[in-house]
Design a protein around this nucleic acid. Structure first.
Lengths: 184, 184
DNA sequence: CGCAGACTATATCGATCGGTCTACTTCGCT
DNA sequence: AGCGAAGTAGACCGATCGATATAGTCTGCG
C-alpha cells in the first residue's frame, strides 16, 4: 500500500471520528506515519484535495459492499449490519465518512460534491435491485433515496445514543416499504 | 434578548453551517457582536458548554414546532417543509444543528448527549401522534425513530446535492408507512 | 446615592492550524 | 553508473485556535 493510500485511509478514519473540520493535518501525519511533505506531493491542493480523495475512496468501497449486499436475501439488513459493526467496533466513535464530507462543504467543497455523487451512486445500486423485484423505475428511485437517508440518519442517531437500536428499528420499516411495493 | 441568547443563537447558526469543530469562538464573537469575556461569564465551561447550550436551545425550538406540526392534517410534510425552508433560504449551507452536535462528540461531549436526548424527545412527540391514530405503542416508537432518521438523513443528502428532492422523496414513503400501520 | 454584577474592549497567552521550505535518502529505470 | 522522481525528517512561516487577564463602562437595586 503506497503512501497515497495510507494518507486517504488515515484521513477517512479521522473523518469518521472528528469530521472534516476536526481532522487536523498533523493528526493525519501522526496516525499514518507519513512525512508532512508527502501530503503536498500527492495532493497539491492540500487538505481539501486529500479529504476529497479520502471521501471517494471510502465511499467507493461502500458502493462495492452495497453491490455485494444486493445479491443477498435481505440486502438492507446486511447494509445496516455493516454500519452496526462500524459503530460497535469503535465504541460508537466512528460514523460515515461520506456524511462527514457532505457536512464539510465550507472546508472542502470538492469532498462535499464527491459525497453527493456517492449518495447518488448508492441510490442507483439500490434502485437497480428494486427494479429487479418488479418495482417501477421512478418508485425505485425515490425508495432507494429513502433507504439511504433512513440508514444514514439512523447511523447518526445510533452514534448519539450509543446504541444500535435506531439502526435496527429503521431496517424493519425499510423491509415493510419494499414489501409494500413488491406485491404487484 | 440577553447576551446569553445572542451567543447561543449565533453558535447554533454557525453549527448549522460549519459543524462543531468548524465553529470558532472568534467567529461566534464576530457574528454575535458580543465581547469575548462574556462567553466565559455565561458559560464557564467555555466552547463545549456554549455548544451544548446552543444545541438544547435550537433543538427545543424544533420540538415546539414539531408539536405544532402534529396537529396538522399532514404532519410530516410540514416537518419536511420546515427543513426545506432552512435549506433553500441558506443556499443549502445550513443544516440541522442537532446533527452537528451529535457528530461533534469528541469536541463537545455534553452537546452530543443533548443531541441524543433531543432525538429521543422528537421521537416521543411523533410516537404520541401515531398512537392517536391507533398504532401500537411499540410500532409507533420504531416508526417515529425511522421518521426522524429518514428526515435527518434526507436533510444531509439535500445539502450535499443542493436540491430538496431527497427530502420530497422521503416524505412520500413516510406517508406510505403511516398509512400502512394506520389501517386497523 | 453608592455599590455590585454584568457587560465591553483589548492585549496577551501557549498551542495548534495548514502550508512551505531545505536537506538528505531511497528506489526504479535506462 | 547515473539520473530523476518520490520518499523521509524536521525546521519554520504567519495565522488562528480557545482561554485568560486587565481595565473601564453600564445598569439595576437596596
Amino acid at each position: 500500500m503506497g503512501v497515497r493510500d495510507q494518507l486517504t485511509a488515515a484521513t477517512a478514519d479521522l473523518m469518521r471520528r472528528h469530521g472534516v473540520a476536526g481532522t487536523g493535518v498533523s493528526e493525519i501525519l501522526r496516525t499514518s506515519g507519513v512525512a508532512r511533505r508527502s501530503i503536498y506531493l500527492n495532493f497539491p491542493g492540500g487538505k481539501s484535495e486529500l479529504v476529497a480523495a479520502a471521501t471517494r475512496t471510502a465511499g467507493s468501497s461502500v458502493t462495492l459492499m452495497l453491490k455485494k449486499f444486493m445479491t443477498k436475501p435481505d440486502p438492507f439488513a446486511a447494509f445496516a449490519a455493516m454500519w452496526s459493526k462500524v459503530l460497535t467496533s469503535s465504541d460508537f466513535e466512528s460514523g460515515c465518512p461520506v456524511v462527514a464530507a457532505a457536512l464539510g462543504r465550507s472546508e472542502a467543497p470538492a469532498a462535499a460534491d464527491a459525497a453527493a455523487e456517492l449518495f447518488r451512486e448508492w441510490g442507483g445500486v439500490i434502485a437497480g435491485r428494486l427494479t429487479e423485484d418488479g418495482i417501477d423505475d421512478q418508485v425505485a428511485d425515490s425508495l432507494a433515496t429513502t433507504i439511504v437517508a433512513a440508514v444514514e440518519g439512523a447511523v447518526i442517531m445510533s452514534q448519539a445514543a450509543g446504541s444500535t437500536k435506531p439502526l435496527e428499528q429503521v431496517v424493519v420499516h425499510i423491509r415493510e416499504l419494499i414489501e409494500l411495493h413488491s406485491l404487484r
